[in-house]
């Protein structure tokens, strides 16, 4: 059935692509076709592994959840990889989880070629995801205003504001194109509401 609608209504927007994948498009396609790993995006920084485990284990036995971390702070930065034992379970998760809210946010999931050590870190200049570097809007679940809202931040870092900023639902290569790693120069804008800041501290304390 799905093919009926798939054919004349191709999904809008790009699918998730790991731009640092070293291999030909054919190799990438082959890896994706056999993958049991999902890339999950648009998470709140405060979403815990337990919540993700609860959300994704509904579809089948989860092998592991790898939280995406800020390269500098080593705190969650809004994405993760979910690996299943069986491909069917991962497929069901993709079909259903898109459009579902986790921690009050509509999350997005797509196939990933498979996790490799190092990929858990954000590739933005600030250490987090690129999308938060280029975002100028306010997003309480992702640390308040994005880096692009900080005056002069982009110019000082030679940042190119590619792609539409401030689209929390957009599925883009959150880890960004290959760039030199830069040290965080500007502090993350932390004007999130007080309760969210408290929650962050609470979670770091492992009090759950």
């Amino acid at each position: 059935m799905a093919s009926l609608y798939e054919e004349f209504k191709p999904s809008r927007g790009g699918k998730y692509v790991d731009r640092r994948f070293r291999g030909s498009p054919e190799e990438r396609a082959a890896k994706l076709a056999a993958s049991t790993t999902l890339y999950v995006g648009n998470l709140a920084f405060y979403t815990s592994e337990d919540q993700l485990w609860t959300a994704f284990s509904r579809f089948g036995e989860v092998k592991r959840v790898i939280m995406g971390l800020d390269r500098n702070l080593k705190t969650p930065c809004g994405f993760c990889f979910v690996e299943y034992y069986r491909r069917e379970d991962a497929q069901n998760a993709i079909w259903i989880i898109n459009g579902v809210k986790v921690d009050d946010r509509l999350i997005r999931a797509d196939w990933d070629v498979g996790f490799e050590p190092g990929r858990q870190y954000g590739r933005g200049r600030s250490g987090g995801q690129v999308r938060d570097d280029v975002r100028s809007t306010y997003d309480a679940g992702r640390g308040g205003y994005g880096k692009a809202a900080v005056e002069g931040y982009g110019a000082r870092n030679g940042m190119q504001l590619w792609g539409p900023a401030g689209e929390p639902d957009a599925m883009r290569d959150d880890e960004g194109p290959g760039r030199k790693r830069g040290r965080e120069e500007e502090p993350m804008v932390t004007d999130a509401p007080e309760d969210i800041q408290k929650r962050r501290i609470f979670r770091r304390g492992g009090n759950r």
């Binding site: 059935m1 799905a2 609608y5 259903i96 459009g99």
Partner: peptide, 9 residues
């Protein structure tokens, strides 16, 4: 039964 892949549709 038929719209597993497109639940919103």
């Amino acid at each position: 039964d038929n719209f597993l892949q497109k639940h919103l549709e």
